[in-house]
């Protein structure tokens, strides 16, 4: 009995609840006669396109800066990179890869400046990161207005200036990754290329955590005073971690856009931070301990939940966005739970 209980505790109550919820929804979907193959295919795509965002949370937790609430900085950098690629009219693999390359450059610059700011506010990174992120999103809103893009896909058809709120990539690199080596099992579509790419990035990050720099980052995150005493430059380590996180988000949004079919500009990036945060926490990460599998498992659970819940909810309450309400409650509930677990001073 106690063994079972310990196993349950190791697995974590939040995960059990969410899995139970997913099963419940799946049963509901079956009973309603939903198309299960489509549901599973959709879930797989959603998992793949969102995973890098959750992975982006890992480096900041690793260096002890908590969840990266300013991930919007990485996202707008990524969008900027992708849009430049679209502007140049690059298509297919070349377009996407060039976009990602530019995204990495922009993300590095943005992340570096962001990390310099966060280094001065140690202990309050999450709160301040959140507001810095929002500030940057609105600064970029002004930039999108004046941005010197010329490609008619990007700018408004009337007036000839200003970026649209959604930019379709269908003529450029939509689903380049998803379609690569795509195959079907029965009627379930497997987006092989998407997963290959995402897992490649995960593997590279894994290699990074096991490198010398990765070790240094972990030591800093675990005990900064000890790290300083061992001759580690703490601020440098944190710059690396926060910048890496921003870059991962910048890559992530391009992977997302090629799968989703659109870039969302203006206020779009604002709400994107919370689901990945909830994902990595749900996967089992805490403010002190984080592993790549937490991002993978967490994204898998939360995205499956959200994808499967959508049609079921629509069936139950037509013309409503119950699934969006669920997303808000679940993501923020998980974050809130994690905050209380991390505890402050109890006194």
């Amino acid at each position: 009995m106690s063994v079972v209980r310990r196993k349950i505790r190791e697995f974590g109550m939040p995960r059990i609840i969410i899995i139970a919820f997913i099963l419940l929804i799946l049963v509901g979907a079956l009973l309603e006669g939903q198309d299960m193959a489509t549901l599973i295919s959709d879930s797989l795509v959603r998992v793949g396109q969102n995973m890098l965002m959750a992975l982006a949370m890992l480096p900041t937790i690793l260096v002890g800066a908590g969840l990266n609430m300013g991930i919007a900085i990485g996202i707008v950098s990524g969008i900027l990179g992708g849009l430049i690629s679209v502007e140049l009219g690059l298509v297919g693999w070349g377009g996407l890869m060039f976009g990602i390359l530019l995204a990495i450059c922009a993300g590095t610059v943005g992340g570096f400046i962001y990390s310099l700011l966060l280094n001065r506010v140690r202990g309050s990174e999450m709160l301040i990161g959140n507001y810095l992120g929002s500030t940057v999103v609105y600064l970029m809103c002004m930039f999108w207005f004046a941005a010197p893009f010329k490609n008619p896909t990007i700018i408004w058809p009337m007036g000839g200036k200003g970026v649209r709120t959604t930019i379709p990539v269908s003529d450029f690199f939509e689903k380049v990754l998803n379609r690569f080596l795509m195959f079907k099992i029965g009627r379930v579509t497997i987006p092989t290329g998407l997963f290959l790419f995402v897992f490649l990035v995960c593997f590279l990050v894994y290699l990074f955590t096991k490198s010398r720099t990765g070790m240094i980052l972990r030591t800093v995150g675990n005990n900064p005073s000890y790290a300083a005493m061992s001759g580690i430059h703490i601020n440098k380590a944190r710059i690396i971690g926060i910048t890496l996180s921003t870059v991962l988000a910048a890559i992530g949004i391009n992977v997302y856009a090629q799968s989703y079919g659109f870039y969302q500009t203006y206020e779009g990036p604002l709400t994107m931070a919370f689901t990945p945060m909830a994902a990595i926490l749900l996967g089992g990460a805490t403010m002190k301990n984080v592993k790549i599998r937490h991002a993978v498992i967490g994204t898998f659970l939360i995205q499956t939940l959200l994808t499967t819940a959508l049609p079921v909810c629509n069936q139950l309450f037509p013309e409503s966005n119950l699934s969006e309400v669920f997303r808000i409650i679940i993501s923020n509930g998980i974050i809130l739970y994690a905050l209380t677990q991390a505890g402050g001073d109890r006194r």
Partner: peptide, 18 residues
Amino acid sequence: TKGQEMITSMIVGYFSNG
């Protein structure tokens, strides 16, 4: 969550909105 009140109150806002 003493010491983290502001961020907690912020997330409380989002959560209760849901």
